[in-house]
Structure formats: C-alpha cells, structure tokens
Write a protein that binds this DNA or RNA. Structure first.
Lengths: 251, 251
DNA sequence: ACACCCTGTGTCAGAAATGTTACATGGGAC
DNA sequence: GTCCCATGTAACATTTCTGACACAGGGTGT
C-alpha cells in the first residue's frame, strides 16, 4: 500500500496524515473524507492530494485499497499446495512458452496432424484429434497400429505422441514407423528422461509426480488436456494471422 | 473476486452482468454505474444489488476491487490462459468440496458407475470410466445409446453424465432412461442453468466462459478431467478407509 | 378463476458523499 | 517587497447511494 519511496516523499502534513491513517486503520476505512480531514486537522483537498500521491484516483479508491489490505493481512493464504496448481504456475510463469511456440511453428507448416497414444493416453489422443479438428486443423487419431496410413497423410505431417511414462513399447514402435515415413514428431510426456522424449523432434514435459495404483499409472492427465488445448488455440490464432497477411498484404 | 458460490447463486440478469463484466473488464473499471447499467440493459439498482451480492459495499468498491484484481493478474500470469487458473482458484479455495463429498458418498454406495457423454464429452466419459476402473471402482462407458444395459448393472448404480452445454438431446434422453431404471445421476456441466443439471440428483459445475469456433463448442475441458480424477481419488480414499474399519473395527 | 403474496426489477427523487475548480491566504525564499 | 508554493476555503458538479414505491410474473391456496 505505502511504498518506502512514497513515505520518503511525504512532507510534514502528509506525514501527519500517514501516521494517523496507519494508527487508525480500522476507523479510517469507515470515515468520510471530511471526517478524516477533521481528525488530521487538514482540509479535504489535502487529503485528496494525499490520496493521489499514494496512487489512488480518489478517496474512495484509497479506502477500498486500505480495506483490502487489512483483510489480506489477517487471512492466511490457503490453496497453494496443490500439484496441479504447481503445474500451472510453472507453465504460466516460466518459458515453456518458447517450446510451445516452436511446436506451433511446426504444426503450422504441416498439412495434417496425427495423434498417437495407448490406453488412457489413447483416449486423450482422441480428444486431441477432435479438438484440433474442431478448430479447423485436419487431424486424426491412430487407434489401430497396423492401420495402413495413406501416403497423402504421411506427406508433410506432424505426429503428436502421448505417453505418460514415455516407455510404452507399442507407442515407441509406432513413433519409429512414423518417423521413418517422414513425419515430424512432437511428444508430450511426464518428463524428458524417457525414450519417447529423446526420440522425438520436440518434447513437452509436464513433470507431475507419477502415481501408481496396483501397477497402473494414475498420474493426473490434467496438464495433457491443457497442453493439447493450448496448442490447438495457439495454432489456430497463428494460422488465422497468417491467412490475414496472405489475403491482404497491405494492411 | 468471484467465488463459485457467487456465480452459482446468480440469476439470469446477474449472469448477464457477470458475463459483461468479465468480458469487458478493462472498460468496466472506468465506467460510471449508469454506463454499466446501460451496457447490460438493466437498472442501476440491479447493478448495485449485484455489487452487494459479490461482497462489495457499493459500486465504487466493486470497481476498485476489479481494478486491483486486473493489476495483480497481469503481474503474475502472462496474458491469455488465466481462465483455467481461475477455475482452480475457485475450487481450491471455496467449498465446492462439500458437493464433491456428497458425490463421493453417492458413489461409495453404488456397485458400479456408468459414464455417459457424446462427442468430446464422450471421450472424456471414456477417460473417466478408465480412470475409475484403474482405481478399482467398477465402471464403464456407455458409447452406444441403444446398447442394452444388463440388469445387474442397473441395480444400484450411479451414472455420471458429462455435457458442456447440458442441453444435448441424446444425452438427456439417455439420462432419463437411466433414471427410470433406478440409477442415481451425477452430472458435470459448465453451469447449473441447464436441463441436464436440473434433472440430475447432483450437479458439479465448473463455470468456464463458453467458447465457440464456427458453431462447435471449444470450451476448455481441463476442469472436467480434474473433477473426474479428483472424484476417483477421493472415492478410492473413502472406500479404503471404510474397508479398514470393516476389517478391523477396533482401530 | 380469483385473490394473494413474494420476489425480482425498474423508477425516481433526494440525500450524502466525493471530486473539481477557482480563488484566498500566508509564510518563506530571493 | 514580491513571487511562489503549499494549503485552506467554499461553492459547485458529479456521482453514488438510499429508500420508497410501482409493477410484472409466478406460485399458492381457496
């Protein structure tokens, strides 16, 4: 609320006001500007100038800010300690952004997108394919690994490979096949220390603590959905921009 | 700023206001109460009542709070995808907890869980069924609506119905059929103002801003995955506790 | 069908508060 | 002395806030 620079810049009268305010916080938040002026023995105009000086537009804004400050001081922050929360804090603050940008670049240049995954990752792959298609990017989910992929699809395609552990042998086999056939590969795995991540052209890792229940991996997949949706949205934005430029290069 | 209880308690007009505010945040903070009233096609009194409802003493307090929220947001998160963040803040802080607990209660008593959904919600339903099964709760995803459900499955079952809009006619039809056959219904929808929510025994709503791209609904489904996983985990915990008590009633 | 009530909403007037402005004052610096 | 700056004053404009009331629609009981 009050930075040290502010306090340093106060003159005598303002210091008086400041002192009064901090010693009577709980009363000030209910006062009218005239009351405060009276209590501090200054004019309302001075109070108002004071408010502006500490970064408020007016007296009422000053009061609400003070009020909020008081409240936040007494209430201890909760939430916080949640795994998923941590993921979002990481992605939103750090520069996973740049990796995402690279992925979008790659996807923009592709004519079609193939999704690969097994088990629950398979379901998410299906979701991804659907979401991408909804946003206008041709994409499909490869369910059956022996399914013959048409030549047209292999040309100039990007595959998005999903795997939590990154060690599923079927997934790896399929990824190899796709690479051999000239598809670029983006993998989304829980961490970068796995075969899938190492073998792909680009890797997005989300680093949740891996959890198991009687041998099945039950690590949360919330980040995967988030990454897939974000990719699709960014891609869509990107392509739309590109189209605008192509259509009308002078604007 | 807006907790999920608040949002849930909004009626039509208030929801309109809410939607306008969050889509025009940066304008609202400069508006007079009359302007906002005009833009949202309601009276100033309604705006004022709205402000009080969301925990502000008056309109000016509302504006300052909004202003502060905007500022704090830009300093922490960078642009864009804060929508999902908001969901987590809401759920983690507020007590959506109690609704989740009720759901878990209901699920504990059921012998099996049926997942229902169409389109992308269908994929998520499949994911849910798989996740529940991984955690030891017998559950299945009903893909084909004409699929004859075995009697054994109908007895003492809970259905989890997924639908973003909550208005898909197939889903509703299927829900009706399940209800008729004695299954309890938990629905997971984007908001409570929809047929699906109203018709179910229990509703979990996540309140993301609905987004469309050329008529298809592309609202984020991150909360759905989160809710499904959380349900499964809590359920598992709960059942484990119960078993411990049954096995060894003295500890 | 009717009366009744309750709730949500709008309207309006006027009180109360804030914000603005122009000007007065007064004390120091030059 | 006089010029300037900080402050006070006071009237006025603007805005918010309050309260009373009207009105519509839905539900309920008779």
């Amino acid at each position: 609320m009050f930075t040290s620079e502010m306090i340093a810049s106060f003159n005598d009268l303002e210091t008086d006001i400041y002192n009064y305010v901090i010693t009577h916080e709980h009363e000030v938040i209910y006062m009218r500007i005239r009351e405060l002026a009276e209590h501090t023995h200054v004019s309302t105009a001075t109070i108002l100038r004071f408010c502006k000086k500490v970064g408020c537009e007016g007296f009422s804004e000053f009061k609400t800010k003070l009020k909020l400050e008081l409240k936040s001081r007494q209430s201890v922050v909760k939430s916080g300690e949640h795994a998923v929360m941590e993921f979002f804090e990481r992605t939103l603050s750090s520069d996973q952004e740049t990796v995402l940008e690279e992925a979008v670049q790659m996807l923009t240049q592709a004519d079609n997108v193939l999704f690969v995954g097994i088990g629950s990752s398979g379901i998410l792959a299906e979701y991804g394919a659907r979401y991408f298609s909804s946003l206008g990017k041709f994409s499909m989910y490869i369910k059956d690994f022996s399914y013959p992929i048409h030549n047209r699809l292999q040309k100039n395609s990007v595959s998005i490979v999903l795997s939590v552990s990154g060690e599923n042998s079927f997934t790896i086999k399929q990824m190899n096949r796709l690479k051999r056939e000239g598809s670029k590969v983006i993998s989304i795995t829980n961490n970068k220390q796995c075969t899938t991540a190492k073998m792909s052209d680009l890797n997005l890792a989300y680093y949740m603590t891996e959890e198991y229940y009687e041998d099945t991996n039950i690590t949360t997949q919330v980040p995967v959905i988030y990454l897939l949706e974000t990719l699709a949205r960014k891609l869509n934005q990107h392509e739309q921009q590109r189209n605008e430029i192509l259509e009308d290069p002078h604007e």
